[in-house]
Amino acid sequence: MALATRTDRRSSIARTVWDSSVGKKTVMAVSGLIMLLYLVVHMIGNLKIFFGPDEFNHYAHWLRTVGAPFMHEEWTLWLIRVVLVAAVVAHAVSAYQLSRRDIRARPAKYVHRRPRASYATRTMRWGGVILGLFIVWHVLDLTTGTVHSGGFQEGHPYQNVVDTFSTWYGDVVYIVAMLALGLHVRHGFWSAAQTLGAGSRTRDRALRATADVLALLLTAGFIAVPVGVMTKVVS
């Protein structure tokens, strides 16, 4: 009997990762951590609004010249935007595909129902959708100014932020989204650590605590801005 010649080619690492449920979860973890890192920086930058229009606007203009003179104006900014868009798309597409698989795997529900898992865990999917819609609104409101209330002024971010948070719907949309963000990060950070194999019995408490602290700091830091405008601390 002749031995069969192996004609199958070993699939590429990208293919293996994307086709596996464990691999796709890795894509979610990595893209999530990239976005989380950005959010921490973004939140700290936002707090400059409490030091007056000059400091905040100066910071906003500096963002365009980061990396100069090596980088041309706005190059760094666009680089970050491209990475972020890629992360959002990768995160959303894998979430959609994994969710489809999960729902297919459990077609029949139990007659005797009880709440399963924590609130943060159960709201990952809808929380993610809310955050996705929020990002679209947020960019159209404060980056492009397309849906901005009361005349968007290019190059005057301080005034634009105050305008947005002077409307009741601007405050509501933003605060709801930031609460959703807190819940998402709380389960997401800890989950990402498990997916990447970084969790262990001895490290579990530290990882959960880090997730809680990150979620709280991000939510509180971001919500401080609309609260500041509402209470006229920022005007």
């Binding site: 596996s20 449920s21 979860k25 994994l98 999960d102 795997a105 898992a117 865990t121």
Partner: peptide
């Protein structure tokens, strides 16, 4: 893991 996926089991959401 590949067989587990092929059998139609879902993925982990760490619930």
């Amino acid at each position: 893991v590949a067989q587990m996926d092929e059998e139609g089991f879902g993925g982990c959401t760490l619930a």
